[in-house]
């Protein structure tokens, strides 16, 4: 059902556009893509998103843990956390556009503390991170639901035992919850990545339209531009084939590494958050990562 159109689509990517419609052009479209600085920006933004992935998984994971452990008001949180997820990205984008506008309330608040205004969505170095952050905010509710279901397989006796031993919250999370939920974590990793790479169009369209200076292009947005605005369907097809291959490789790597990890954690021991196993992260590339990730790396080195 989905594979046959996929073959047609990939086949299409080797043909020409416009006057060359229908004729085979070999790898011409792919060469053009890699020569296009915009497409290269889109690819490096994919790298950035993959780096942000651990954060996007950790947030719903932690919140789900709190709800599971019945922090005060957990019923209330359970209800409101899902709310952003049901809103259309266009509305979410519009809301954040207002908040982050140059003359918007965020800058006004900062201004009252004497901080000079920041052009949040107008600065090419900031905009991508901001949009990704808004995406995480808008979608963590979905992962939260998955995590909550995952807790059903958690052995409550183990949890009680750990608490009786006087384990701190951090220890409980590390030694009990993460090993038990390794499959759920794996699932959330893979689906969060897919969400980031294939469903940010709405936000990008409303918040930045790929700008400023083309800094917030993602393959998905690039495909839309080529297909709809530039009338280059075959080139768009080639770009989406590349997107498919990237997701396939990164996704299967995640599954494989997390699987291996999951099996090893059958033996009690410090597992760390499984995130560090990601190829991009182990490459030690991002010193801009949040402190939590560095902590996890240290844990892994110790393991």
């Amino acid at each position: 059902m989905r594979l046959y159109p996929l073959i047609l689509g990939v086949n299409f990517s080797f043909t020409g556009d416009g006057a060359q419609n229908g004729t085979a052009v070999g790898f011409g479209n792919y060469r053009e893509l890699f020569d296009d600085p915009l497409f290269r920006t889109a690819l490096s933004n994919v790298g950035l998103l993959v780096l942000l992935l651990p954060v996007a998984v950790a947030i719903p994971g932690l919140l789900a843990t709190f709800i599971y452990l019945k922090v005060p008001g957990h019923r209330f949180y359970r209800s409101v956390y899902f709310f952003p997820a049901v809103l259309s990205p266009v509305i979410v984008g519009a809301i954040f556009n207002l908040l982050l506008a140059f003359d918007g309330p965020l800058n006004a608040t900062l201004g009252s503390f004497g901080v000079s205004p920041v052009d949040w969505l107008g600065d090419p170095d900031l905009a991508m991170v901001i949009v990704a952050g808004v995406h995480i905010w808008a979608t963590f509710g979905m992962s939260l639901v998955v995590f909550l279901a995952g807790f059903a397989t958690l052995d409550a006796a183990l949890l009680d035992a750990a608490r009786m031993d006087g384990a701190s919250l951090r220890q409980v999370i590390r030694h009990v919850i993460i090993p038990s939920l390794s499959r759920t974590i794996q699932f959330v990793f893979v689906t969060t990545m897919i969400g980031m790479l294939t469903s940010m169009f709405g936000l990008l369209y409303v918040m930045t339209t790929g700008g400023p200076e083309g800094s917030t292009y993602l393959p998905e947005y690039y495909i839309w531009i080529q297909q709809g605005q530039m009338n280059r369907p075959a080139l768009a097809s080639a770009a989406s084939t590349i997107l498919f291959v990237i997701m396939l490789v990164v996704g299967l790597l995640q599954v494989k590494l997390l699987d291996a990890r999951g099996r090893r954690t059958d033996v009690p021991g410090p597992s760390g958050m499984v995130v560090g196993r990601h190829p991009h992260v182990t490459a030690r590339a991002g010193d801009d990562l949040p402190a939590a990730v560095h902590r996890q790396r240290r844990d892994e080195d110790a393991a």
Binding site: L100, A101, F102, D119, G122, A127, T208, P212, E213
Partner: peptide, 12 residues
């Protein structure tokens, strides 16, 4: 107007 690069022409 300030922040032109982050202001939408339509219709901000």
């Amino acid at each position: 107007s300030d922040g032109a690069n982050s202001t939408a022409m339509f219709n901000d």
